[in-house]
């Protein structure tokens, strides 16, 4: 009797969420850069207006979001680490990866620019100059998409900055905003991204020093969590969000989004249709 009741309760619990898939809000895991810029709120309002689907967003670094996506804690994720995203889909954790938009990575630093980053022709050259002068550089150090992109540029520059960890190279292990606050307080160089920077108010003496260049494009991909692996995910609503963001409504909204007069994000549709952009 007791066992039967317990079993019934267990069945109720396990089947409950599956039934409620379409009624509950969509859980979206995304990164600080999208959230801090304000574009997330802007896009989700538009999506809600068109479809009536409510989206709840959790904000962490890309590494953490992918990990949570793997365990099925989100219905869908919007992140920016192309290699990791492809691996995520490849191992069966995600259904498909769809390019939504891009922003620009930036090297920001003291206005007087002691390392002369302004005149560098590309990002690795700029990093070589910062390292050569042992100028203070603040890194996320948190496995986020921005952190991964930064480390990729260091390796292109043939420098291992972590050898100087705690000296001129400082890893905050925190989100973009917290890291920018540290850089601002220390008037140090920092690797950031146009979305977060556009909406960051505590700039102090920092300004953008790097120019747009190869390796500085920051692509955001949206990936529904694989419903075959996690049957409890709201797969239909997730699919509709992908269609909306990559369709005309979402792409137009992204192109029209402004922060303090700046346009931090380019819609994917504005990019040349090369295989790398797919």
């Amino acid at each position: 009797m007791v066992i039967r009741a317990a079993l019934a309760a267990l069945m109720l619990l396990t089947t409950g969420p599956a039934i409620a898939n379409d009624d509950r809000p969509l859980l979206l895991g995304t990164t600080t850069s999208v959230d801090n810029s304000g574009i997330l709120k802007f896009l989700m309002r538009g999506f809600h207006g068109d479809t009536g689907i409510e989206v709840r967003t959790i904000v962490r670094g890309t590494g953490a979001i992918l990990q949570l996506g793997r365990s099925g804690d989100f219905d869908i994720i919007l992140v920016h680490d192309e290699a990791a995203e492809r691996a995520f889909v490849g191992e069966g954790a995600g259904a498909t990866r769809n390019l939504v938009m891009t922003s620009r990575f930036l090297i920001v630093g003291p206005a007087e620019d002691p390392a002369n980053v302004r005149s560098a022709t590309d990002a690795p050259t700029a990093l070589v100059r910062i390292a050569a002068g042992k100028h203070r550089f603040i890194s996320r150090g948190d496995d986020s998409g921005t952190n991964t992109a930064e480390l990729r540029l260091w390796s292109q520059a043939n420098i291992d900055p972590r050898a100087a960890s705690g000296l001129w190279y400082r890893e905050t292990g925190s989100g973009m905003g917290a890291t920018l606050n540290v850089a601002s307080a220390m008037t140090a160089y920092v690797f950031t991204e146009s979305g977060s920077w556009a909406n960051f108010s505590n700039r102090g003496d920092l300004e953008i020093l790097s120019i747009d260049g190869p390796g500085l494009r920051n692509p955001y991909g949206i990936i529904p969590v694989n419903p075959t692996r996690h049957p409890h995910v709201a797969a239909d609503a997730a699919r509709r969000l992908v269609d909306w963001l990559t369709g005309p409504a979402g792409q137009t909204a992204i192109a029209g989004f402004r922060v303090n007069g700046e346009q931090p994000f380019q819609p994917a549709s504005a990019l040349p249709a090369t295989p790398a952009n797919r």
Binding site: T32, N36, K41, R56, T57, I58, V59, G175, M176, G177, A178, L180, N181, S184, N199, F200, S201, N202, R203
Partner: peptide, 24 residues
């Protein structure tokens, strides 16, 4: 909680969020 607006955002997580935006 995940600091979800209108769902799980409380005073302390809101303070952390505003700090991260530089809105000190």
């Amino acid at each position: 909680g995940g600091n979800i607006e209108h769902v799980t955002r409380v005073m302390t997580t809101a303070i952390a969020l505003e700090t991260s935006k530089g809105n000190l």
